[in-house]
Design a protein around this nucleic acid. Structure first.
Length: 557
RNA sequence: GCGCCCGUAGCUCAGGUGGAUAGAGCGUCGGACUUCGAAUCCGCAGGCCGCAGGUUCGAAUCCUGCCGGGCGUACCA
């Protein structure tokens, strides 16, 4: 990619090669190019001389000056190079170099910043995976947004991504769910019975009971719990799961695969996985239970996989599940979990290592919890407790775009206060509208240009007029457009999407200021052409980034 | 008790492997529309980066110890 930053980086690398002793260090040192806050320090700066100085036992300034002396710049990329402070090297780029970024963007706008698909490199992102015992809440929504965007991002960076939802449709919680519906059903039919503790008492269970009566009538009025339970369990889990799918759909989240925990048991994979681990020497018996020796891989204690009563644990199923993922040929598995599961990370990593996989083949992203507020007051959140705000209600009230954008503007491991009144009432000042407004504004410019009969084709226009872009904000915009691939790369490396919203804000802010001070459609046709090229590139990158975030890019608003 | 995460402007949050004068939004206050969209722009104010040590040319960032908050510490899922 002919991006200024990369060209500069390889220039420095070549220069470094002729330094004494660099050959031994090349593998362990990477050249970092920083964009200085102070423009007096150049377009790019590097602290590379410091890193070398430590290893070569020489003065950083000395190394910096040798580095500069070795720089070869046949294309005239650099206008000026300086040594500053104790050994920074500051690079000033020739303004003509920025123009090629526009062509780079416009040549293939949808794919700008993306990488070619890397052939056979299947990666799975598993996310949400909420139990089908109640509607999705706001915390699931955060995980959904992050998982969805990480999947988009990895795909954009060349991975072959599969999105999967793991359905915990087994275990005694399913019985609890069925009983909850059964009791609500009886109550709705007038039976004066108590609703037991530790069951799902949310309003949705009452609705489900009424719906069930509408479908099946009073058939089960006098049926015993034991006899009726399978019907009620099946009905409740199916209907709740359908609701979850619908809520995700409304939130713009799609999955390639829905993986049922129950099928693990039906295919006998849980038992087979335990046998497999036993053959490898990681299973032992103690006090009537079967244990997995997770301490062999750094977990703080061993974990039970089959209880003394003969029933396997949730963890055992999860081991089987992860084994199955690799059986399916996945190279890397990314699990997105709520931060309240962090105690679980070590044991699952121990599990996959016991299966002969390396630790890096599973990456766990912990998403911190969401504190839902309304006007500064906490809103209670508990599935069994009953009253809580669902994801669907939040999306209906705040809007999909704003909800996603708020989730995606924080680091995943940072707790998030989500205030409904703030997200909604100040909607005009919401950062997502700031970005969308810029996009709509840009669309309008092209509409006006058409109305005025101004014909514009970026390919011919760019060749003859881009050199006219010399205003400071224009140079800054082009430079920032050039950073976009870097931003995507950082997101994909760190599995942190929040750099994208921050980048968008920066880009859009620069554009709004530029727009305010300069006319894009002016008297000089050549200059107008040039500015339209720039405007088009900005618009395309905004749309490109919003698409990755799953946020719409409206033409009008 | 032990383990993990977090303490940055009044509020909500950014600050890749240590880098130059710590940033943004909101909020406060004051300015800018006969022009391509004012859902915008410009400016002012706001900080012992939880506290105390340490490592070094250099620390919000790394190490140690405190203080304060969240979560986890099941033969639950």
């Amino acid at each position: 990619m002919a991006i200024v930053r990369n060209r500069l980086k390889s220039m420095i690398a070549r220069a470094a090669h002729s330094l004494d002793g660099y050959q031994d260090l090349e593998a362990e040192l990477t050249i970092e190019l920083d964009i200085p806050k102070n423009s007096g320090h150049g377009d790019y700066a590097t602290n590379f001389a410091f890193a070398l100085a430590k290893r070569l036992k020489k003065n950083p300034r000395q190394i910096a000056s040798e580095l500069i002396a070795n720089l070869a710049d046949p294309d005239g990329l650099l206008e000026k190079v300086e040594i500053a402070g104790p050994g920074f090297v500051n690079f000033f780029i020739n303004s003509s170099a920025w123009h090629e970024i526009i062509r780079e963007v416009l040549n293939d706008p949808q794919n700008y910043g993306r990488l070619e698909a890397q052939g056979d490199f299947p990666v799975q992102v598993e996310f949400v995976s909420a139990n089908p015992t109640g509607p999705l809440h706001i915390g699931h929504g955060r995980g959904a947004a992050i998982g969805d965007v990480l999947a988009n991002l990895l795909e954009a960076r060349g991975a072959n991504v599969q999105r999967e939802y793991y359905i915990n449709d087994a275990g005694n919680q399913m019985d609890t769910l069925g009983r909850s519906l059964y009791y609500r059903y009886r109550q709705e039919l007038g039976a004066g019975i108590e609703f037991p503790d530790n069951h799902y008492r949310g309003g949705y269970m009452r609705e489900l009971a009424r719906e069930f009566i509408g479908q099946r009538g009073e058939t089960f009025r006098d049926t015993s719990l034991e006899e009726a339970l399978p019907v009620f369990t099946e009905y409740a889990s199916r209907r709740i799961f359908e609701g979850i799918k619908e809520d995700l759909d409304v939130f713009g989240v799609r999955f390639d695969n829905w993986f049922s925990e129950r099928q693990l048991h039906e295919r006998d994979l849980v038992r087979k996985t335990i046998d497999y681990l036993r053959e490898r020497g990681f299973i032992y018996e103690n006090e009537g239970a079967l244990w997995f020796k997770s301490t062999a891989f750094g977990d703080e204690k061993d974990r039970v996989v089959v209880r003394a009563n003969g029933v396997s644990t949730y963890f055992a199923a999860d081991l089987a599940y992860h084994r199955d993922k690799f059986e399916r040929g996945l190279k890397t598995v990314i699990d997105i979990w709520g931060a309240d599961h962090h105690g679980y990370v070590d044991r699952i990593l121990a599990g996959i290592q016991a299966m002969g996989k390396n630790r890096e083949s599973v990456r766990v992203v912990l998403v911190q919890l969401v504190n839902l507020l309304r006007g500064g007051q906490p809103v209670a959140m508990s599935t069994r407790g009953g009253e809580f705000v669902t994801l669907r209600e939040v999306v209906d009230e705040v809007g999909k775009d704003a909800t996603r954008f708020i989730f995606l503007t924080r680091r995943t491991d940072s707790p998030l206060d989500f205030d409904l009144e703030v997200a909604k009432a100040r909607s005009n000042d919401n950062p997502v509208y700031y970005v969308q407004y810029a996009h709509a504004r840009l669309c309008r410019i092209f509409e006006v240009a058409r109305e005025r009969g101004f014909s514009f084709d970026w390919r011919s226009a760019s060749a003859q007029s881009l050199h006219l872009l010399q205003v400071r904000e224009e140079l800054q915009l082009m430079k920032l457009l050039g950073e976009y691939p870097e931003v995507l790369g950082e997101c994909a490396r760190s599995l942190e999407p929040h750099y994208i919203p921050y980048y968008l804000h920066q880009l859009v802010s620069l554009f709004h200021g530029y727009y305010h001070d300069n006319r894009i459609l002016g008297d000089d046709d050549r200059l107008t052409e040039a500015r339209l090229c720039l405007a088009l590139a900005v618009k395309e990158v905004i749309a490109n980034a919003l698409a990755l975030l799953g946020v719409s890019a409206p033409e009008k608003m």
